[in-house]
């Protein structure tokens, strides 16, 4: 270990194990995305909470029919899709930051991030499929449980 500072300046980009130059705008875009998506999520989440829990009959109105009715409208499909994707990217990037800040060993980081990205993929793919392949009028169901526009 050299205990006396090597007075060479400027220092060449950090070499050595585990220290490659990692310049670029990626983290910059990530930082901006957290703030931009945060603002959008504020509107999306509170809009969602209001419509589901407060407006009209409030929380008592929620049943299969209510959800099916909402997802029959492209407006709510887009709203929920946006909320799903933004929250998942925002939350995943946030947890990625936390892993970088707290996990000390490279191996721990790799495992935690692997689990994180897997969870991200499962939720986003499943969620997106549900929003677009949702059948509001499954055949053979009792009519009183279905939204009003289902016929027969």
């Amino acid at each position: 270990m050299t205990l006396v500072a090597d007075p060479k300046a400027p220092r060449p980009p950090r070499g050595g194990p585990g220290r490659r130059t990692t310049r670029g705008n990626t983290e910059l875009y990530g930082w901006i995305f957290m703030r931009a998506s945060g603002v959008l999520l504020l509107v999306l989440i509170f809009g969602h909470l209001f419509v589901n829990l407060v407006a009209g009959d409030g929380v008592k109105a929620i049943d299969f029919g209510f959800v099916a009715g909402k997802w029959a409208s492209p407006f709510w499909q887009v709203w929920d899709l946006l909320m799903l994707w933004l929250a998942m990217i925002h939350g995943t990037n946030g947890v990625r930051t936390i892993i970088n800040d707290y996990a000390e060993r490279d191996g721990t980081r790799l495992v935690l991030k692997g689990l994180l990205y897997l969870a991200f993929a499962v939720v986003v793919i499943l969620g997106t499929l549900v929003i677009f392949t949702f059948d509001p009028c499954p055949a053979g169901s009792p009519a009183d449980l279905l939204p009003s526009f289902c016929t027969a």
């Binding site: 130059t21 990692t22 310049r23 670029g24 990626t26 983290e27 930082w31 800040d101």
Partner: peptide
């Protein structure tokens, strides 16, 4: 700015 626009640069500030 380029040097600090790094994975380990200013964007790690919380």
């Amino acid at each position: 700015l380029e040097i600090l626009n790094d994975k380990e640069g200013v964007w790690r500030c919380r």
